[in-house]
Design a binder for these strands. Structure first.
Lengths: 213, 213
DNA sequence: AAAAATCTCACACAATTGTGTGAGGTTAAA
DNA sequence: TTTAACCTCACACAATTGTGTGAGATTTTT
């Protein structure tokens, strides 16, 4: 069987050595090179193809996030696993959005690392169990409206809000709801006051924040 | 030790019976009641407190998502675990945003269910391993602007977009940028075309999607 | 049953937004 | 250096939005 070609990138030589030692013991993984920053990774890829890129998040010159973007843009078939010591939940989602395949803690066990490489190679998403929760938390981190701070918006008003969000004009909303434009205008007026906004733009922004639409 | 008080909610009686049977064998869990829909859950909570709510996502009258919102609003200390057969990734993030604690598949093992209840009770987030990947995928699923699909928005235009998002009128934007209202109007006009929207509301929505603001 | 909230509509008017067309000056790219 | 993109502004006009006030009808809550 062909070995999984892995490129290691970390600014700490000790880390690179440690990783190489770990993977040396595994028959299905071959470390084909190392890099000290993102630029070196891109240089390496110009000359040689790899299957998996194991990447330190914190690096000088070009960090993990930026590197991932560049790599995925030019070599989309490469699986990228981010390796890091700390676990800032907020960045995890960004990582996956730019196309990373996995996210592992540096203090993960040797077995986890090896398994992570293999899973990534097979196209699976890889995530340290401890990090799942972090990620979930980060989803909630946007200034979620505190319980009592949301005024009571009526059903009809919500209908109006939704239509406004869909770029409907007052006239179109009136037609859609079978009421007069005056009525729609009244709903909007009341909404502006309730939501404490100046215009439809502010209204829709808050509506999104509040989960109204 | 006090038992963990659990309320089961599912519109299928068979499911309820099965769950009861499973939890009956565990000494630390006590099923204190069952409900067939969200309304019954809310009714139950008026008279009796619980620790964990195991909730079917698909229910008539009031589904899991809506129920969760109501429950967390009035009884924030209750841990909610969603139980479902299918796994629509997109809904998972919504779930956590409304305050759910976990999300398990109905075909999870008995052990997983029991452990899930215990974890939730201790405040941990619970997620079927198989669903982690789904969730990650769903992060990527918002009509992410494909590389080439985002038109080139100039710096000046972005400034305008940001101010519009802050409920500035054209006049105020003009003052803020030290240009005439005509200029601002022109920027807006160009933005409408570039972004293919009808008005400022649509513009701000897309701007958010595209990460412009 | 009385009170409060909701939904409806009218009328009038000010304010703002959106559209069309044309164009001069500056900057960046080919 | 020629072209292209960008920023600027004007003028005019239509369309839409936003405000203020008042009020009847229906539903929900107390």
């Amino acid at each position: 069987m062909e070995k999984i070609k892995v490129l290691l990138a970390d600014d700490h030589q000790i880390m690179l050595d440690g990783l190489k030692a770990i993977f040396a013991k595994d028959k299905s993984i071959e470390v084909v090179g190392t890099a000290n920053n993102g630029l070196e990774v891109l240089e390496f890829l110009k000359n040689q193809s790899i299957d998996v890129l194991l990447l330190d998040l914190q690096m000088p010159v070009m960090d993990g996030l930026e590197t991932t973007m560049h790599v995925k843009k030019s070599y989309s078939e490469v699986k990228v696993i981010m390796l890091t010591t700390n676990d800032e939940g907020s960045i995890i989602t960004s990582l996956f959005k730019v196309g990373a395949t996995g996210y592992l803690l540096k203090n993960a066990s040797k077995e986890s690392l090896i398994q992570g490489i293999k899973d990534a190679f097979e196209g699976k998403k890889v995530l340290s169990a401890h990090l799942t929760e972090k990620m979930i938390d980060s989803l909630n981190e946007n200034p979620k409206p505190k319980e009592g701070e949301i005024p009571k918006i009526t059903k009809r008003e919500i209908e109006v809000v939704k239509l406004i969000a869909q770029e409907y004009t007052t006239q179109e909303i009136a037609d859609a709801l079978f009421v007069s434009t005056n009525t729609v205008a009244t709903h909007k007026r009341n909404l502006f006051v309730k939501m404490d906004v100046k215009n439809s733009v502010g209204m829709i922004k808050k509506a999104v924040d509040w989960g109204l639409i």
